[in-house]
Amino acid sequence: MRRSSPLTLQLKDYAGEEKISDLPSRLPTASSPAGTAVKKGDITIYAPWGNLAIFYKSHGYERGLIKLGQLDEPDALPVHPDSYSARFELLTDK
């Protein structure tokens, strides 16, 4: 397994259904779908704001949401406290 450089973000509660954070830079979204519906544990980008959003509740279709992936254990995402730091690291098979 190979690991990417870790990224630490400050997650804060938004709308009582997701944790959001600003990213160090905007991800390109030009060829992405117009939007998506999300399930608990989905990791997304909200294109209009350029922020990361991790859902702890399901949400209907929302224009501008782009799914990046999903948590392996969605119930493990802390809902409380409202704001906390989280470390992200990408693992690859290479």
Rank of each mutant, 00 (worst) to 15 (best):
R2M: 12
R2I: 07
R2A: 11
P6D: 07
P6Y: 02
T8Y: 04
L9S: 02
Q10P: 00
L11N: 02
K12L: 10
K12I: 10
D13N: 01
D13H: 03
D13C: 01
Y14I: 13
Y14C: 13
A15H: 10
A15F: 08
G16K: 05
G16V: 02
E17L: 03
E17R: 11
E18C: 05
K19P: 07
K19T: 02
I20N: 05
S21T: 08
S21N: 12
S21G: 08
D22W: 10
L23D: 14
P24I: 15
R26A: 06
L27T: 12
P28C: 13
P28F: 07
T29H: 09
T29I: 02
S32Y: 11
S32P: 00
T36C: 12
D42P: 06
I43Y: 07
I43N: 01
I43F: 07
Y46N: 01
Y46V: 03
Y46E: 01
P48N: 01
W49M: 01
G50Y: 11
G50S: 11
L52Y: 09
L52T: 02
L52F: 06
L52D: 02
L52H: 11
A53E: 04
I54E: 02
I54H: 06
I54W: 04
I54Q: 06
Y56L: 04
K57W: 03
S58N: 01
S58V: 07
G60A: 14
E62N: 12
E62T: 12
G64W: 09
L65R: 10
I66S: 04
G69E: 15
Q70D: 15
Q70N: 14
Q70S: 15
L71K: 02
L71E: 00
E73K: 08
E73F: 03
P74T: 01
D75N: 06
D75P: 08
D75C: 08
A76Q: 03
L77Q: 03
L77N: 03
H80Y: 08
H80K: 09
H80W: 02
D82K: 05
S83C: 12
Y84Q: 08
Y84F: 10
Y84T: 08
F88T: 05
F88N: 00
F88Q: 04
F88S: 01
L90I: 14
L90D: 11
L91P: 00
L91I: 15
L91S: 11
D93M: 13
D93V: 15
K94Y: 05
K94I: 11
